[in-house]
């Protein structure tokens, strides 16, 4: 793997989409985490990568953008960010990341997907009206998701939401959000949202795979990221790491 050294443009170079004008993770950035903290990648093909990197730092992990198969090496966990699931799926194929990523997930790599990331973790996706949609998914979780289930952007909303295992509600931001239409017996439901049709699953876990229909990364609340870091630490990953104190 050749490293890319290239004269930086005026604003500083970065591999994270949207980082151009943000200097909060600039060249002098050093994560304030303890030695031995898990290294968690954020798929950086498209979407709100930076927001996840920020909350991973808060949650005590070392965040790292992932664009190539080489970037997958040495990861203890991976975040699939919010974005457009069709675009990220297309880019996963074009970057030849789909196969290697599926292999890593089969081998037990913990993954946390939010919104588009949750859709990518499903085995099947439906349109908003419940008809099947053809798109590239990563898979891993035994669930079917319904895209834009809460409606288009004018129906996007924020609300407080109880999540199993958390003592206080999370403030959840739903943007053209999906919900989990069917979940297999292995899938543990962690949160539901009230809808006109009754409660619908919006946070679920299967082993070391975690899916959220809303965007914790758009708030300052790191508790779901903490939960994921704990899943990573509990998971048997190829890289054994010392327990953090």
């Amino acid at each position: 793997m050749t490293t890319r050294h290239f004269p930086p443009p005026a604003l500083g170079r970065s591999r994270v989409p949207g980082e151009g004008l943000l200097d909060d993770r600039g060249p002098h950035f050093r994560p304030t985490v303890l030695a031995g903290a898990p290294r968690i990648g954020v798929l950086a093909l498209q979407g709100d990568v930076l927001e996840h990197l920020r909350l991973l730092d808060v949650a005590g992990a070392v965040g790292a953008p992932v664009q190539t198969t080489a970037d997958l090496d040495g990861l203890d966990g991976l975040v699939l960010p919010g974005g457009e699931s069709t675009t990220i799926g297309t880019l996963l194929e074009l970057h030849n990341l789909l196969g290697p990523l599926r292999q890593r997930i089969d081998a037990g790599l913990p993954v946390f997907g939010t919104c588009a990331g949750a859709i990518l973790l499903a085995r099947r996706a439906l349109r908003h009206d419940g008809t099947p949609v053809e798109q590239t998914l990563v898979g891993g979780m035994d669930m079917v998701v319904r895209r834009n289930a809460f409606g288009r952007q004018v129906a996007s909303f924020e609300a407080d939401l109880d999540v199993t295992g958390l003592t206080a509600p999370m403030h959840a931001v739903f943007i053209r959000a999906p919900w989990i239409e069917e979940a297999g017996s292995e899938v543990e439901v962690l949160a539901t949202a009230d809808t006109d049709l009754g409660p619908r699953v919006v946070v679920a876990r299967q082993g070391a795979l975690l899916a959220s229909a809303f965007h914790p990364e758009l708030t300052d609340d790191p508790r779901l990221h903490h939960l994921f870091v704990r899943l990573v630490e509990e998971a048997e990953t190829p890289r054994k790491r010392p327990v953090r104190c």
Binding site: V49, G83, R176
Partner: peptide, 28 residues
């Protein structure tokens, strides 16, 4: 800070929800 602001009713059309969709388009 967000957890301390109680909002039992879901709210639409907030700045965060409006700006949030653009956040999802980054890099695209």
């Amino acid at each position: 800070s967000d957890a301390h602001i109680p909002s039992p009713q879901p709210s639409t059309g907030t700045d965060r929800v409006k700006r949030g969709l653009a956040d999802m388009l980054k890099g695209g």
